[in-house]
Amino acid sequence: MISSAAQQLRASYAFVERNTNLIKRYWSWEVVWLSYSIANSLSVSYIGLGLERIGGLQVDGRRLVLYLVVGTLVWHYLSMIFYWLTDIIGLERWEGTIEYTLMAPIRRLTHMAGQTIFAVVYSLLFTGVILAVSVMLFEIDLASANLAGAALVMLSGSLSFIGVGIVGSTLPLLFPERGSQMTHVIIAALLLVSGVYYPVEVLPGILQRLAIVSPATYVLRGVRAALLDGASLPTLWPEIWPALLMGLVAIPAGLHAFGLAERYAKRAGKLARSG
């Protein structure tokens, strides 16, 4: 029993170590991606400072900047987790190693756990760099912010995005040629309805209804309340529990969906593209 657990733990760490090695070897691509992400985040956040001049409106530019900075940071963090999880199959299809990983004596939960640990840690580090640059450039004052509360909301949102990511990872299993590209549809829909750069109240009714089922909606609202208004934990709870609940539903549902997709791929011969 213990040796089996140790074996699964080692197997789980295999994915963390492999991904770390891949990051090291593809370091130049990671630098490019980080630079792009910083530029993208800053471009969106500067809209906050520019709005007064564009519209001639009296707005609290600093608050608006922080509103947009939170949107870009939370979105970077959640979408990175999503993409690392959907890459669980996409990456291996690209490298041609998928059959070797899927014939190893490990449970899919172990496989997902390793990929998830790496995804969360790496996304945190990546987002941390963007945050540091944003704080420096915009002289953001977080003295009255509830940082612990914001972290708690992010953590609860991570769970649901892990689940959504696992569901997304079934697409490259089901569609060998275009499955990875299909995952963009999920993330684009979440970006539209979750209020990343605007309050969901400005959306038409049908999109507002979709926002209710997006975990990102609660994470963004919660993190903004914690950072902009210094909201306390009881005030944040209405945003935390829906995100947690979605995670508790999405992770087992994702694992189940992955199991079904893997079975289908093995039945239809979709693991290997030839041979």
Binding site: S3, Q7, Q8, R10, A11, E17, A104
Partner: peptide, 9 residues
């Protein structure tokens, strides 16, 4: 080493 870890080594 990646392969070995998957087999519990």
């Amino acid at each position: 080493i990646y392969g070995a870890r998957l087999y519990g080594l």
